[in-house]
């Protein structure tokens, strides 16, 4: 599998132009804080007003803002945010099934529940979940929407070493069983050892060619 992504634009005064081509399915974008990693993900997701993105997976052009900008809700890009963002007024199952009217289906919801070991959690509320559990729900919710590319922003934030090791297998399932292309952003090199197959280093809003 090959993955080629590019996004450029600006967020306020900060300009960025970041892109890569990789023969891998799981690519990590790393760099110091403020280098534009998260802004790059926002650009790919379409969450920035002034940005343009292009995504190619194998030979398929999955997204191209070049001619006409694709609205956020039609991008088929999954995003697991650093601050998780589960819907507080819905149960775990309602969160995961949120995308059902927009292309998800009953089976993907069931698969996502199974894959993230969330059976028994269906009727729980986000407020009652631990950090690791909430992350698994966020992963399941993104998965159930059947994205073509998954964006993970600091997937291990706020978890200690033991909990990191407990969460990592779930990300590996998405990588190796679902074969979902993914880009993960991190400031911590240890995350790369766990998940990523390829690394892109970013500094000052551009790819750091010297690294």
């Amino acid at each position: 599998m090959s993955l080629a992504c590019h996004a450029h634009g600006r967020r306020g005064d900060f300009r960025f132009d970041i892109g890569f081509e990789s023969p891998s399915q799981a690519v990590a974008v790393v760099g110091p804080s403020g280098c534009g990693k998260t802004t790059f993900l926002h650009g790919l997701a379409g969450l920035l007003a002034e940005s343009t993105a292009r995504i190619r997976i194998d030979d398929a052009l999955v997204l191209d803002d070049g001619m006409k900008r694709t609205p956020v809700h039609r991008r088929a890009v999954g995003y697991v945010f650093q601050d998780i963002r589960l819907f507080p007024h819905m149960t775990v199952e309602q969160n995961i099934a949120f995308s059902r009217p927009y292309g998800g289906d009953e089976m993907t919801v069931a698969q996502a529940l199974d894959l993230m070991d969330l059976r028994g959690y269906e009727r729980r509320r986000p407020a009652g979940l631990s950090g690791g559990e909430a992350r698994r729900v966020a992963l399941a919710r993104a998965l159930a929407a059947r994205p073509r590319l998954l964006l993970l922003d600091e997937p291990f934030t706020g978890l200690d070493v033991k909990r990191r090791e407990r969460l990592a297998p779930y990300l590996l399932r998405l990588r190796d069983e679902v074969r979902l292309p993914m880009i993960l952003v991190s400031h911590d090199p240890r995350d790369l050892d766990l998940i990523a197959e390829d690394v892109v280093r970013v500094a000052g809003g551009v790819v750091d060619a010297n690294a």
Binding site: L47, V72, R75, F81, R85, H89, F98, A145
Partner: peptide
Amino acid sequence: DRGLEDAASMLGASRLAVFVRITLPL
């Protein structure tokens, strides 16, 4: 939280759907 609205958009919800399913209930 605008972040919740963005999360709903990323899951395929149109602006109207985000308003009805996220903004209004919250």
